[in-house]
């Protein structure tokens, strides 16, 4: 569909039509890819050594960035809640709101966004480089299915490690809020921690962990998808990494909203 008229002027309807068709085609391709990866991930054969290697790369090596992000988010959250709460004389609710915000929302979302940058782009660049240097063709000629050998291990590693990282992010985020509250805002350490533990529920923690599983799948899938359809050359691989990072970040935020809405409706 042409998005320009014969005179060379932009045709808004043509542009909207072309963009809509392009979006639907891309969504269709991504859905097909996701279905094939899921089939490969949940049916034998599994490459356990590859799954373990990806868990270390995605999980263990992300600990520093997740830990640092969480401590600063928790600390900033405590300061802002204290400032806002002091207008109504509600400063004492800082530990409650910090733990609620971290476990239900920020722990999973910040971890998801950090890993969209670190992991999704990394997977896309790695697989994109494998695509353009014929390594994926070589895998096929050596009787290895790329969906089982490359994509499924990354997808499973994302599903498994994101919740573990979110547990770490929750603990460090809460401790960031505790540190600021105790050392800067004059809270009593024991009271702060007791209020935190009394207030947080198993449901709050579960909400964050369920989100983390979804984010882990999304992040790994976007990296694999954009890497797999990477165009030749450094530009193609760079573009795949950028697209996967942007796509994963947007989808993490979109799924966060969708899941939050769902959890509110079912009373979780």
């Amino acid at each position: 569909m042409s998005s320009k008229t014969k005179g060379g002027f932009p045709n808004p309807l043509g542009w909207i039509g072309a963009a809509t068709l392009g979006f639907l085609a891309e969504a269709g391709r991504l859905s097909m890819f996701a279905a094939r990866v899921k089939t490969a991930a949940f049916t034998p054969r599994w490459y356990f050594a590859e799954i373990w290697r990806q868990m270390v790369r995605i999980g263990f090596y992300s600990l520093p960035v997740v830990g640092l992000s969480s401590i600063f988010i928790g600390a900033a959250l405590a300061l802002n809640i204290y400032t806002g709460g002091s207008r109504y004389g509600a400063e004492q609710f800082v530990p409650n709101i910090v733990v609620l915000g971290i476990t239900r929302e920020l722990g999973a979302t910040i971890t998801g966004l950090m890993l969209a940058g670190r992991v999704s782009a990394g997977i896309a660049a790695e697989i994109g480089a494998m695509r353009v240097t014929e390594q994926i063709d070589a895998l096929k000629t050596l009787s290895a299915n790329p969906y089982r050998y490359l994509y499924a291990p990354r997808f499973l590693a994302g599903l498994i490690t994101l919740p573990l990282l979110v547990v770490v992010a929750n603990i460090i985020g809460v401790m960031g809020g505790w540190a600021v509250s105790v050392f800067s805002l004059g809270f009593d350490s024991t009271t702060y921690l007791r209020n935190t533990l009394d207030f947080v529920t198993q449901e709050d923690i579960s909400v964050g962990l369920i989100k983390a599983v979804v984010f882990g799948g999304v992040i790994a899938l976007m990296g694999c998808y954009h890497g797999d359809k990477s165009q030749a050359g450094a530009t193609g691989v760079g573009r795949a990494a950028t697209l996967s990072m942007v796509g994963a970040a947007v989808l993490v935020l979109a799924f966060n909203y969708i899941l939050s809405t769902l959890f509110v409706r079912i009373g979780l």
Partner: peptide, 9 residues
């Protein structure tokens, strides 16, 4: 035997 070798990095 691939042109680029296609060895797994």
């Amino acid at each position: 035997l691939f042109q680029s070798g296609a060895l797994f990095d």
